[in-house]
Amino acid sequence: MYTTTAITLLVIMDPPGQVPVFLSLVGRRSAEYRRKAAWQAPLVSLLVISLFAVGGRAILAYLHIGIPALQGAGGLLLLLVALQLLMGLGGSTAAQVSDDVNVALVPLGTPMLAGPGAIAAVIVAVSQVHGDVPGYTAIAAAILTVHAVVALALFFSTGIIRVLRVSGITLLAKIAGLLLAAIAVQLIATSVIGFAATA
């Protein structure tokens, strides 16, 4: 169970793929802010995923929310971030908005790391254990391992900023925005397919 859960979360959360988005969002901030964001984002993700691991099915059932709804909401949030990166990161207004928002919480912690895919994967993994304590322990260890890998990837990526400079970060923001937009559209499309299948 440990290996399966860890590999699934690593593929979904994609630590190397988070690096360009992380750099594009924090590249213009101070070194202290970048180091803080590098551990805050995985910590937020860990808290959210742990919450859903413990009571995910009950939370979704109580609120009458399905996985397709989570996917649609995550897709819309990512699309807004993607549009900001593609069109507004270089402008003064966008820079002011970014300064007022802790990007380690949104969009890095959630929905980039603790997104619909990771939440659904954890809920499914927990539902397969059926009260087995070693199984729960294995899932918890897998979640901690994956978040440690993510934290290391983000922490060491801060050194790349010295090489990229402002022009490199601007280019990276455009590329990250395009990739995020594609991920967002895919999430929304998957959400629509999920709703259609349950209709």
Score class of each variant (00 low, 15 high):
Y2D: 10
T3I: 14
T3L: 13
T3Y: 08
A6H: 03
A6R: 01
I7T: 14
T8V: 09
P16D: 13
P16L: 12
V19A: 14
P20S: 11
L23R: 09
L23Q: 07
V26F: 07
G27R: 05
S30D: 15
S30Q: 13
A31T: 12
A31C: 05
A31D: 09
W39Q: 01
Q40M: 08
A41F: 10
A41N: 11
A41P: 05
P42N: 12
L43A: 13
L46D: 01
L46E: 01
V48Q: 08
V48I: 15
S50A: 14
A53V: 14
V54C: 04
G55T: 11
G55Q: 11
R57H: 04
R57K: 03
I59N: 04
I59V: 15
Y62Q: 11
Y62D: 12
Y62F: 15
L63A: 12
L63W: 08
G66E: 08
I67N: 01
A69S: 05
L70P: 05
G72L: 05
A73M: 10
G75R: 04
G75A: 04
L77M: 11
L78Y: 05
L79T: 03
Q84D: 10
G88W: 02
S92T: 14
S92C: 03
T93A: 09
T93S: 06
Q96V: 08
Q96K: 13
V97K: 00
S98K: 05
D99V: 01
D100K: 02
V103H: 05
V103E: 02
A104V: 09
V106N: 08
I119D: 03
A120F: 00
I123P: 01
A125I: 14
A125V: 14
V126I: 14
V129F: 06
P134W: 02
P134H: 03
P134R: 04
I139A: 04
L144M: 12
T145E: 00
H147Y: 05
A148H: 01
V149T: 04
A151V: 14
A153L: 08
L154I: 13
F155H: 07
F155M: 03
G159D: 13
I160M: 06
I160S: 06
R162G: 00
V163I: 12
V163H: 09
L164W: 03
A173S: 15
A173H: 14
A176V: 11
A176M: 08
G177A: 04
L178K: 04
L178I: 11
L179G: 14
A184W: 03
V185Q: 03
Q186C: 00
Q186L: 08
A189R: 06
S191V: 04
G194H: 02
A196H: 04
A197K: 07
A197F: 03
A197V: 09
A199R: 12
A199E: 05
